[in-house]
C-alpha cells in the first residue's frame, strides 16, 4: 500500500505522526502511550522481518529486545556511556547473538525453527535470572536519563515528553529501513526463498545465506527498541524475556496482516491503546487479546486486511 504512496505524502504522514501526542491533548499519559507504542512497534518490526519475509515464526526475538535493554542499562549505569555508545553496543551485541542463533537454526524450518528459537529464549532468560553480572533476578536499577548529542545539539531526558522525539525518529527510521528492505535484493530473495524455494535455487539464490542475512538484519531492530525501552523505564530486568513481549510482537504482526509496511505499527497501537485507555482488567484484557487473535486466525488468516479484501470483492461483484 505504502509502495504506491509518493515520497512527499509519506513524509507528510510521518511529520503528522510526530504531532499526534500534542494534538491528542499533550497529557503525559498520551506521550507515554505514544512513546511506548513507537518502541514496541520497532520491537515487533524485528520479528516481522522473519515472519513476513522468511515465513518463519521466531519465538526468540525477546533475546534481541532484552539484549538492547541490558546493553543500554549496564553500560550507562556501570560505565556512564552516553546514548550513542550504548546504542552502538546494543547493535553489536545483537548482531553477534543473531549470528550464533542464526547459524544454529540455519538448517531448521517451521516448527523446529520456532522451537529452537523458543528454547534459546528460555536459556537466555535463565542466564539473565541467575548471572549476577547481568543483575540477576533483581535486574539493573537506576538507568540514567538518555543523552544523545550531535554537533553540540541534542536531546536528553527521562520523561516521555523528552523521549517521544527519539522514539518517533527510531520508528520512522525503522519504517524507512523496512520499506527499503522490501525492495532490496535481500528482501526479494527472502520472499522468493519463502514462496518458491526451487525457483530461488534455480536462479542461484543461496537460501541458507539469505535466511542467515535476514535473521542477522532483524536482530538490531528489536535491540534498538530494547535500548530505548531501558531509558524509558529506567529499570531493566529479566521480565524483558517474558511472554508478554513475545505475544505482543507476534500479535501485532498477525492482527493486521503480514507483509504490510504499517501492519506491526497499527497492530501495536491497537493493543496498547486498548490496554491503556480501554482496559477491562488484566484477565479481561488477555481474554480480549486471545479472542481477537483466535478470531482473526480462524476467520481471516491474512489478518484484518483480509476483511478489506472481502469487502472489496463484494463491492466489485455488486458493481
Amino acid at each position: 500500500m505504502m509502495a504506491r504512496l509518493s515520497a512527499p505524502l509519506a513524509l507528510a504522514l510521518a511529520a503528522l505522526a510526530y504531532f499526534i501526542p500534542a494534538v491528542s491533548g499533550g497529557a503525559p499519559v498520551v506521550y507515554a502511550a505514544c512513546t511506548t507504542i513507537a518502541i514496541l512497534a520497532v520491537m515487533a518490526y524485528g520479528a516481522d522481518l522473519i515472519l513476513s519475509y522468511l515465513g518463519e515464526v521466531s519465538l526468540g526475538h525477546t533475546i534481541f529486545w532484552a539484549t538492547g535493554g541490558y546493553a543500554a542499562s549496564m553500560l550507562a549505569v556501570n560505565y556512564g556511556w552516553n546514548g550513542w555508545a550504548t546504542a552502538a553496543a546494543a547493535i553489536v551485541a545483537a548482531v553477534v547473538l543473531a549470528c550464533v542463533l542464526g547459524l544454529v537454526t540455519l538448517r531448521t524450518r517451521e516448527f523446529v525453527f520456532s522451537l529452537v528459537t523458543y528454547a534459546a529464549a528460555v536459556v537466555a532468560m535463565e542466564v539473565a535470572f541467575n548471572w549476577s553480572f547481568l543483575g540477576g533476578s533483581d535486574g539493573i536499577v537506576g538507568v540514567p536519563p538518555l543523552v544523545l548529542t550531535i554537533f553540540g545539539w541534542g536531546v536528553s531526558g527521562a520523561a516521555n515528553t523528552d523521549l517521544w522525539p527519539i522514539a518517533w525518529l527510531l520508528l520512522m527510521a525503522t519504517l524507512l529501513f523496512i520499506h527499503r528492505f522490501r525492495r532490496s535484493r535481500l528482501g526479494t530473495s527472502a520472499l522468493m526463498v519463502q514462496m518458491n524455494p526451487d525457483l530461488a535455487t534455480a536462479l542461484g539464490v543461496d537460501a541458507r545465506r539469505v535466511r542467515l542475512a535476514v535473521f542477522v538484519t532483524s536482530a538490531p531492530i528489536s535491540a534498538l527498541a530494547g535500548w530505548l525501552y531501558a531509558y524509558q523505564r529506567a529499570y531493566v530486568g529479566p521480565d524483558m524475556f517474558e511472554s508478554y513481549f513475545l505475544v505482543l510482537m507476534l500479535t501485532a504482526i498477525v492482527i493486521i496482516g503480514r507483509r504490510l509496511l504499517l501492519g506491526p505499527l497499527i497492530g501495536t497501537a491497537l493493543i496498547i491503546v486498548q490496554q491503556t485507555f480501554f482496559s477491562i482488567g488484566g484477565d479481561g484484557d488477555k481474554i480480549i487479546l486471545g479472542a481477537v487473535l483466535a478470531a482473526i486466525l480462524l476467520l481471516w488468516p491474512k489478518g484484518l486486511i483480509g476483511l478489506w479484501d472481502v469487502a472489496a470483492r463484494r463491492l466489485r461483484s455488486s458493481a
Binding site: 503525559p28 499519559v29 507515554a32 511506548t36 535486574g139 529506567a234 529499570y235 490496554q275
Partner: peptide
C-alpha cells in the same frame, strides 16, 4: 503503564507493590 496513568490522574501518593520486579520498574516513573 499504570504508574504513568497515576501520574496523569495527579494522585498525591501511590501505594504499590506485591511483586518486587514490578515495584522496581514503577519506582523511577
Amino acid at each position: 503503564t499504570r504508574a504513568n496513568e497515576m501520574v496523569a490522574e495527579k494522585v498525591a501518593v501511590v501505594i504499590e507493590g506485591w511483586n518486587s520486579p514490578v515495584t522496581l520498574a514503577m519506582q523511577p516513573v
